[in-house]
């Protein structure tokens, strides 16, 4: 982790403690320190015409997806549309056969275990917390490479402040937590790396409706307080559309819609992909109905 990154977390913490949540102040500070990309000049994270093939199965077909700093972006679509593959392509866990992944306008060709150092943190599908480790140990796994104990302590405190339940149960085994709590733990573990972008793979999978609401609330809170950009893959359309800045709709590995949540709501694109009408003809402009 770079010194800049550590300073970044400290600054965000300070902002949080003093209660100055307005973006203007934050971006002024950032540009003063010169570690933020100027707005409008390219995207923070971008996939251009990426194709992923698993043997004969085409998981992603010329998909272009991108996000700017500070955004919450959602990728949605039915089962098997290639949503999770988008994240796997970023993390180097999927065989990319065409196209390019860009991180800060530079091609991203790192091995999986190095990507977290760049500021991209991945929260895998199904939570995948280490159930035989305690909450605190689980969180520490998120930044074990960090030698600076004080910095580790600060990050632990920050994450536990954000998720009070983790503080309450910090000495308990992760196996003793409920699904929703484990999801919070997975978020916390991802945040321990002090990432610029948090990739969330189906964070509400298998959770009760009330807990789903809570999870979406936390996603907004992370975005607000830590200014972390969030890239979320979701099947829960309704909840996701309420919190995101931009949404991509995927069907059979292709991006069929790209726009604000309002533009998604305005069309019947989701009905089409979920009810399978769109697959009968190749899609040129997804917003038109049959």
């Amino acid at each position: 982790m770079s010194a800049q990154g550590q300073a970044g977390l400290l600054r965000r913490l300070k902002q949080k403690l003093t209660g100055s949540h307005d973006g203007g102040n934050g971006s002024a500070l950032e540009s003063a320190e010169g570690n933020a990309a100027p707005k409008g000049q390219g995207r923070l994270l971008e996939l251009t015409n990426v194709s992923v093939h698993y043997g004969a199965v085409i998981a992603l077909d010329n998909a272009s997806v991108g996000m700017d700093k500070g955004e919450i972006v959602a990728v949605m679509g039915p089962n098997g549309a290639g949503k999770s593959t988008v994240l796997k392509a970023i993390m180097g866990l999927a065989p990319v056969v065409g196209g390019e992944v860009y991180w800060r306008q530079k091609p991203l060709h790192e091995e999986t275990h190095k990507i977290v150092d760049l500021g991209i943190s991945f929260v895998p599908q199904g939570r995948r917390v280490f159930i035989h480790l305690t909450i605190e140990e689980n969180l520490e796994m998120g930044c074990l490479y960090l030698r600076d104990r004080a910095e580790k302590r600060r990050r632990l405190d920050a994450v536990m402040e954000l998720f009070p339940i983790l503080y309450e149960k910090r000495k308990d085994m992760a196996s003793q937590m409920s699904g929703g709590q484990q999801q919070m733990l997975a978020f916390g573990r991802g945040l321990m790396a002090d990432p610029e972008v948090l990739l969330l793979d189906e964070p509400t999978l298998g959770l009760a409706p009330r807990v789903v609401k809570e999870v979406f609330g936390k996603i907004t809170e992370i975005n607000d307080t830590l200014k972390t950009s969030i890239f979320v893959v979701e099947h829960n359309i309704k909840g996701a559309l309420d919190i995101v800045d931009r949404a991509y709709v995927l069907d059979k590995g292709k991006v069929v819609h790209d726009g604000t949540p309002e533009s998604v709501r305005a069309t019947d694109i989701l009905t089409q992909v979920f009810l399978g009408k769109i697959s009968e003809k190749p899609v040129a402009s997804g917003s038109e109905s049959e």
Binding site: H113, K114, D117, F130, M141, C143, A193
Partner: peptide
């Protein structure tokens, strides 16, 4: 417990 998860966290 989970080899892939640990790789994602930089090991």
């Amino acid at each position: 417990e989970d080899e892939q998860a640990i790789q994602v966290y930089g090991y």
